[in-house]
Amino acid sequence: MLTGKQKRYLRSKAHHIKPILQVGKGGVNENLIKQVDDALEARELIKVSILQNCVENKEEVAHFISKGTQAEIVQIIGNTLVFYKESSENKTIILP
């Protein structure tokens, strides 16, 4: 569980990152979870964009991705989700 100070730090780091994955009409599925998990292992901090044709709401999408990857939800802003998960091999972000 992240503290408020850690979330604030991660939000500032994520500000300049572009979303690398999109959730569309298919919603959250096994393939998306696998892609998010791989991206988190490589980068630790990612943004996921939710398209307008996604049938699930953004809180459900965030919950499903977070539960499937054991990642922390840093921020939900508009249709963009920010996730953090500490990498086991490529650790680059040091939390305060």
Rank of each mutant, 00 (worst) to 15 (best):
Q6K: 06
G26A: 09
K47S: 02
E86R: 10
I93E: 02
A42R: 15
I73P: 07
G27R: 05
I94Y: 08
Y9V: 00
E44I: 02
P19I: 07
F64R: 04
I94K: 14
N31V: 11
V48R: 02
E72W: 06
A62H: 04
V23Y: 05
N29E: 14
N31K: 13
T92D: 08
I33N: 08
T69D: 10
V36G: 01
Q70I: 07
A62F: 06
A42E: 15
K5G: 01
K34R: 13
Y9D: 03
G68R: 07
L51W: 04
A14D: 02
V82I: 06
Y9G: 03
A62G: 11
E44P: 02
K91R: 15
S88T: 14
L45M: 04
S49W: 07
R11L: 05
C54K: 10
K47V: 02
I17Q: 12
Q70V: 07
F83G: 00
Y84N: 01
T69G: 09
Y9H: 14
K85S: 06
R11Y: 05
N31L: 11
G78I: 03
G78F: 06
S12G: 09
L2R: 11
K5F: 03
I93S: 03
K47N: 04
R43M: 13
D38T: 09
E30Q: 13
N79Y: 12
H16K: 14
I20L: 13
N53R: 11
K34A: 12
S88Q: 14
Y84S: 01
Q52W: 13
I46H: 00
I93N: 01
N53Q: 13
A62V: 06
A14G: 08
E44C: 04
V55Q: 12
I93C: 05
T92H: 13
V28P: 06
K25A: 10
R8G: 05
N31M: 08
G68V: 05
E59M: 08
I94M: 11
S49L: 12
A14Y: 00
L95N: 09
I20N: 05
N57V: 06
V23E: 04
R43C: 07
G24E: 10
I46C: 02
N31W: 11
K5I: 00
V48T: 06
L45T: 00
N90V: 06
L51F: 07
G68F: 08
K5A: 05
T92Q: 14
I76N: 04
Q70S: 15
I17W: 07
I73N: 11
E30D: 15
S12Q: 14
R11I: 03
K67H: 09
R43V: 03
E60Y: 09
E59R: 10
K13S: 04
R43L: 13
S12A: 15
D37T: 10
S66H: 06
E41T: 05
C54N: 14
Q52F: 13
C54F: 10
Q22R: 15
I65F: 04
S88N: 13
I94V: 15
K34T: 10
